[in-house]
Design a binder for these strands. Structure first.
Lengths: 168, 168
DNA sequence: TATTGTTATACTCTATAACTATA
DNA sequence: TATAGTTATAGAGTATAACAATA
């Protein structure tokens, strides 16, 4: 999924004079529009660090869970192992992440941040939080909390784990 | 962006025992997780019609705005013209959309639904609404309205049009 | 036999740019 | 000159499958 980093025509959530019909009432459509705006702003703000949303997630997850195996990272991020390899390769080339040999399992690596990676993540996190505040600035603090909680509940149901457990 | 229609490992919004750190507090992360779940469920539910979210949006927009030009559709959906061509081609091959010659401008087409497309859109819309209700079933009706309103406000600010207008 | 990380390969989505036929 | 639709091409992202090393 490549998205324009700096679109010639900025994204317009609602084009004047156009009927959106049933789309207006769909939560899915609202989420997708919000996601487009968020993704766009994220890419713009983090371009100097060459950090994309998946890269940022990987960086934080590795930082918070030192010694993580690549296969575990893949599962957490819901990507194939080969996708995790690409992600870790990119973060390694940026000098942020390294693969440590595992003492207990010589097939596996223990993922960890480098010193440079730790420093970078601090600056990157500040930028990401500024971005997040910027996008949610039209909501009160209380609303932001409510919104996160509602989205979490939505994602939680999701049918996924539940449906699978119930033999979907 | 290709996503698994039926993942071997269902998407887990939160893997037990894993620290998500700063990600937990980010609206962007919450929106992305919700979007993953929505997309997954949509694809699963609409697979029999070979309808993806972008195709559904295009179908509804064409239905609600008869005579639309392909370039206008591209702008509304925030894709390149070439992308709109692919979309309209797919919907044409499904027999849902046709390109009518424009009388006023012989370069342009007027997009319209076929009779089959109108019938299909009715059934598809019912399925999409069932999907949307399914995902948002953990929220009260009032919360769903609130959630949509908040997402709309978020997307509305967005910096996009505003930032562009202010000479970003 | 199963798992870890890797690589090769392919597919989807979507962008840019060039082209044609009109305007 | 500019615009509408199209096509060719390329790139990002990510999946599947096969592989060697290790469990």
């Amino acid at each position: 999924m490549k998205r324009k980093a700096t679109p010639a025509e900025p994204f317009q959530p609602h084009v004047p004079g156009i009927e959106y019909g049933i789309l207006e009432g769909l939560l899915g459509f609202a989420v997708r529009r919000a996601q487009l705006v968020l993704y766009d702003d994220f890419m713009r703000a983090l371009a100097p660090w060459q950090i994309t949303p998946p890269r940022f997630s990987a960086l934080v997850i590795i930082s918070e869970n030192p010694g993580l195996k690549l296969t575990e990272l893949a599962k957490i991020l819901a990507v194939a192992r080969s996708g995790a390899v690409v992600l870790v390769d990119a973060l390694s080339e940026l000098g942020y992440v390294l693969r440590r040999d595992s003492v207990s399992d010589r097939r596996a690596f223990q993922l960890a941040l480098t010193a440079k990676g730790r420093r970078a993540l601090q600056a990157i996190s500040r930028e990401v939080q500024a971005h997040d505040r910027r996008i949610s600035s039209m909501l009160s603090k209380q609303e932001q909390v409510q919104l996160r909680a509602m989205l979490r509940r939505m994602a939680g149901v999701s049918g996924r784990a539940a449906a699978r457990a119930s033999g979907e």
